[in-house]
Design a binder for these strands. Structure first.
Length: 655
RNA sequence: GCCGCUUUAGCUCAGCUGGUAGAGCACCUCAUUCGUAAUGAGGGGGUCACAGGUUCGAGUCCUGUAAGCGGCACCA
């Protein structure tokens, strides 16, 4: 007999081989009807699966959150069945559930069209209506290979071929259609429901390898019910409205054009945003004990050969040959330049840790297909720094960097979701002992900073493991911004040394780190995070002073000058247009504060402030408004510093 | 780089089965001085991405190139 422990804590005994459905029926017939999956000791199983052992047992209906992934997986099978019914000769490969949905990769010579997608979706709904039972079968591996070979499913046969000989495989059958699959699945196609939609067609390499043939991938989204599906589609629409490329155009921040692919033309307002971010970063770095440097844009190839980048990334570098036969490269990163400064003169252990920062303009020839607005460009500026330190300083430096980066991210309205630890890749430089040590140091440092990283196997750089910050934006999307890598390889290759307490020469460790990553990309993330409605301190135009009638022109100009004198970024709008029109226009332009002046305000020396997103107004004297707005426009780090220094003065006076 | 789709006015888009280009917004001009998300009238603006081809005739069909978009691969 096997013991099943139910969620309420009670235990009941059943014959081995009993199915989940039978157990459900022993409780209530209605429950057996609604049972979609069972969970045994945390493992999801088909309801008709014979149970071989006891354990913590739970019956799940299709509404259970855990069932959603299975619904998506089922819908991907239904997609594959529909495709093969409509397009005989198409081979199926794999079709997993993914975040928010599923995809299925199929092989067919003819490309699918958007019209095909409509037909496929229609057929999928018919398959759901057919209520085909989904049945699990255990097959002998070699017979399975032979079977899939015989029906022309060479990709499936290849997958089974990679399963160790002697192991059985499982095949799920729904109606006439069957697929190699680990499962679990719902009891029938009807249970999967119709809250799905095919969303896009794409190409994808077989097994994710660019040397393999390209398959056609059909993406879809699937949910437990229509309301969830509608909500998801609505979220997608909202996310599209935040697209930084669209907002960049409508807010006149930047543009890109084909003569400079992957390069940004920053317009006045965009550059204002840039300079605001850069000035903020500069203050934070200075406060954290960094020094700022600047290194050459173009350097001889010998540096890139020494660092190993020439060998690893030569095709992705912009290289130029001079008339005198030198071969130079635009810097793809700043590390060798910083090491040259470190090596200039002698360094002592007393100089360490030496935190060397640069807003470094780098160029990388990214593959054309990788380019994406500001998010992936060929010319970018890193908020880069290298911390040269002794081995025993690594953990401390990394931990304080995590604190600094987290504070910066929060100031920009981004919250940390988690940190990943990217471990040794293949190929890589350095010995396994080195990698063991370097990975352990990063892990220790993260823990010291109170963070437990999620391991990303093989995601490190070729010379060092790394910690990457995964941030969540205002609508819950995650972005990777910020990294730190502890590198023993490049200081050695580039010949960096310092004199230790023992008078001997030692190799420093180099911590490569960035908080924004690239400023281009970071600004792209900020645009999407705020949907263009920046907080006052970041907004390119903070205030528009606008008139109701031309009687107020003189006062409006005076008010604008007064606000500018308080350091605010102010525009005036004296056009002969209705106030409704002006308010609408500046609201659409996401200006945080509209200061309206009519005859009344002009006579009384006041401003009527209207905040973006609210329709009320605050009527203040010009002096009050200037003080209030100047305070509110203070960058968060400056505001904290001011508050702290006031606190210290208060303590001194009290003491 | 690979697969697919797309490319018409500054922007968003319409243009049926090939017969010689249209809307809204924006822009310019004039009128309007109007209290918190679009005042009215008039006007200018397009080698229909580029290069070939088919045709009496191409924005429309075909081929190639480029760029953009969605993925994949890549991301020091």
């Amino acid at each position: 007999m096997i013991d099943l422990i139910f969620p309420d804590g009670s235990t009941r005994q059943f014959e081995p081989g009993v199915t989940g459905k039978q157990v459900a029926a022993s409780i209530a017939v209605s429950l057996a009807k609604r049972a979609a999956l069972i969970k045994l000791d945390g493992e999801l199983l088909d309801v008709d699966r014979a149970l071989e052992h006891g354990g913590k047992f739970e019956i799940l209906t299709r509404d259970a959150p855990e069932a959603l992934e299975t619904i998506r997986h089922d819908v991907s099978h239904i997609l594959a069945e529909a495709v093969q019914e409509l397009f005989p000769g198409t081979q199926v490969t794999i079709g997993p559930a993914i975040e928010d949905g599923f995809y299925y990769d199929v092989a067919r010579d003819e490309p699918f069209s958007l019209d095909d997608l409509v037909a496929i979706e229609q057929r999928m709904k018919e398959i759901v209506d057919r209520d085909e039972p989904i049945v699990r079968e255990v097959w002998n591996r070699d017979e399975a290979i032979a079977h899939f070979q015989s029906i022309g499913e060479v990709y499936k046969a290849e997958i089974i071929g990679s399963i160790p000989a002697g192991e059985d495989v499982t095949v799920y059958r729904q109606g006439q259609w069957k697929d190699l699959c680990r499962g679990p699945h719902l009891p029938s196609t009807k249970v999967a429901g119709k809250a799905f939609k095919l969303t896009k067609l794409a190409g994808a390499y077989w097994r994710g390898d660019h040397r393999n043939p390209m398959l056609q991938r059909i993406y879809g989204t699937a949910w437990a019910n229509d309301a969830d599906l509608a909500a998801h589609l609505h979220r997608i629409e909202e996310a599209e409205k935040r697209d930084h490329r669209k907002i960049g155009r409508t807010m006149d921040l930047f543009h890109m054009q084909e003569e400079g692919r992957g390069m940004v033309f920053w317009h006045e307002k965009g550059l204002t945003l840039w300079r605001t971010v850069e000035a903020y970063m500069r203050r934070r770095l200075e406060a954290a004990g960094y020094v700022e440097v600047r290194t050459p844009q173009v350097l001889d190839r010998v540096f890139w050969e020494q660092s190993g980048h020439w060998q690893n990334y030569r095709p992705n570098m912009f290289v130029c040959e001079t008339v005198e036969g030198e071969e130079l490269a635009l810097k793809p990163m700043n590390c060798p330049g910083h090491v040259q400064i470190f090596k200039y003169g002698q360094k002592s252990y007393r100089d360490l840790p030496l935190r060397m920062a640069e807003f470094g303009a780098c160029h990388r020839y990214e593959p054309s297909g990788a380019l994406h607005g500001l998010m992936r460009v060929r010319a970018f500026t890193q908020d880069d720094a290298h911390i040269f330190c002794r081995e025993d300083q690594i953990v401390e430096e990394v931990a304080s960097f995590i604190a600094l980066a987290s504070s910066v991210h929060e100031d920009f309205g981004l919250t940390r979701d988690h940190i990943t630890l990217g471990t040794r890749p293949t190929p890589r430089a350095g010995t396994d002992e080195f990698w063991d040590m370097a990975e352990t140091q990063l892990l220790d440092a993260a823990r010291k900073a109170g963070v437990e990283p999620v391991v990303a196997e093989g995601d490190g750089a070729f010379y060092a493991p790394k910690l990457d910050f995964q941030l969540k934006d205002a609508i819950g999307r995650t972005w990777t911004c910020g990294t730190i890598q502890n590198d023993y390889v490049l200081p050695d290759r580039l010949g960096a040394e310092f004199v230790g307490e023992d008078g001997q020469k030692h190799k420093p460790v180099m911590l490569h780190r960035a908080i924004c990553g690239s400023l281009e990309r970071f600004i792209g993330v900020l645009i999407e995070n705020f949907a263009g409605a920046f907080p006052l301190w970041l907004a390119p135009v903070q205030v528009v002073v606008t008139t109701i009638t031309s009687d107020a022109d003189d006062f409006a100009l005076k008010a604008a000058a007064a606000l500018r004198a308080r350091g605010l970024r102010v525009e005036t709008d004296l056009r002969n247009e209705k106030i409704n029109y002006k308010v609408r226009e500046h609201s659409l332009a996401k200006v945080p504060v509209i200061a309206v002046v009519g005859r009344r305000e002009a006579e009384e020396g006041k401003l009527a402030l209207r905040r973006l997103g609210s329709d009320g107004q605050e009527i203040l004297t010009l002096a009050e408004a200037a003080n209030l707005l100047a305070t509110q426009a203070t960058p968060p780090d400056v505001a904290r510093e001011t508050a702290a220094s006031e606190g210290r003065v208060g303590e001194l006076l009290a003491g």
